[in-house]
Amino acid sequence: MPGWLEVILRSFVALVILFTLSRILIRKSVSQVTYFEFICGIVIGGILALGSINLQIPIAYPLMGLLIWVTIPHIIGWLAIKSEKLRNFVYGKGIPIIKDGKVLEDNLKKERYSSDELLKQLRHKNVFQVADVEFAVLETTGDISVLLKKDYQPLTPKDMNLQVAPIKEPETVIMDGKVLDEPLATIGKNRRWLEMELEKIGVAIENVYLGQVDSYGQLTVDLFDDKLKVPSPQELPLLLATIKKCQADLEAFALETDNQAAKNMYTNNAKEMDEVIEKVKPYLQQ
């Protein structure tokens, strides 16, 4: 067999092997891989490259090498799931580098981490002042994870004692002007409903690039023609406004009437509507 043909054959086989390996091995992106896994990957690549080009090496040698370099890390990975000690030994453990707002210089030195590097990594996390950090861990991948002090953390609805409505994932029902029947069925709607909704906002389905339905069954669309303006769903805010108006009306009636029984009735109902407002407000305000 001529040399060039053998190179082609070997390279082809190497490619197939690489492809299957990368599929079955691990589902992590390159940045998440630990040092050990990274080196294993490089060695596997090297073996494949050598085996496919260097014709002096018998074909069995790289295959044997691959067998070891693939199975052993695989087994170690599997065992590491079972045993915490082995896991810490092979993959290492996160090391705290800032604790109680103070930088742990000893740990930094041990990991050969310079102050510049620390600042750089903190900036990656949008932290520009070390004093804002309560706790930080140097992960095994070399990133750092940062816990900010409570007063520097972003405000959440819970901090504000706000009630918020639960949210469900929206379903995409139109893509590139075509109706997707399956997601439409999951939310219990059909094409007829979709046609009606589109008619309500006055657009043709061919003009819709993306259409999504939120958890309250409201349709939002993005059009190919960006000059057209699409009305945003008005139903929920409108409902809230109507309830508020009714509540105010009831209060006004209570003030106006001279009949005591009617006055009481109006006041009670005004209170009831007030409760309704409080209950539905988180759901209707978006």
């Binding site: 409505a165 639960p166 469900k168 958890s215 009831e272 209950k279 759901y283």
Partner: peptide
Amino acid sequence: SEDKEASEVFRETCQTTRRV
């Protein structure tokens, strides 16, 4: 509403409104 909690709130408020 797909969410159970939301659906429950709407049902309750609907009943209150009906009473009023």
